[in-house]
Amino acid sequence: MIHVEDKKFVVPGEILAEDDFYPGRGTFKEGDIICSSLMGLVSLRNNKISVIPLKSKYVPKKGDVVIGKIDDIRFSMWGVNINSPYSGILPASEVFGREKKELSRVFRIGDVLFLRVVDVDEVKKVKLGLKGRGMGKFRKGILVDITPTKVPRLIGKKGSMINMIKDKTRCKIVVGQNGLVWVKGDVDMEQITKNIIHLIEAEAHTSGLTNRIRDKLYLLIDGELPKDLETDESKFDENQLNDENNSNNLNNDSNFDNSFEANEDELEKPKLENFKDIL
């Protein structure tokens, strides 16, 4: 028996369903009843009931791509703040291979990096790496912070939302799965993008968001709405909050991968040859 509908707002402790259903993320089972453990929206898939949180903290997972800020330099590793309860480490070996170099010559405290989570062990030590397409250091640009569960919404279906913002503001945008977003473009456009991203975060749970964001973008940038706007609501809005599908998009979706490529000239690969020359 079920007590709630799909996409209904629930609070912690609310009874969702009894037997016949499987408890998914954001829920727990107590005897025969399934209850919500979070404040969020119900998601029903076949017989699996889960709750998608409206706010959360990022818990690192192997294979995720994240944006992090260097906050410590130790003997053979960098300490990286990845906007999570667990700070990450970037071992020097990930950057130089076997050679030993002076770490502060490569990345300094405050540098913003695009990284991959290489491993998370049982004591929650998060090992980060730079191997992979588009990984490296960001130059200039601003960082915007959103709650990680809203990352799928910011990207939209097959990157619809993020590509629309990129087209309109002509900013370069990179989204990390830890909820940090890097934006680079004109100073004004950076601010507009930042505001738009915060707007998406605040209204992620409402429907018809892609169209509203599009209108807002036109108003902020052109000052008026173009006349031949199509208002096809159904195109974007289906289940965009469903994180399982969209988080995968982040890695697999072709549109989004392209965006990494476009950014590659912005990312600075540590140039090992040069260091050899210096030393």
């Binding site: 912690p12 969020g40 949180p53 959360s56």
Partner: peptide, 11 residues
Amino acid sequence: LADAGIPMKDM
């Protein structure tokens, strides 16, 4: 606590 998105059994 609920607003912070911390998982909990009940309020």
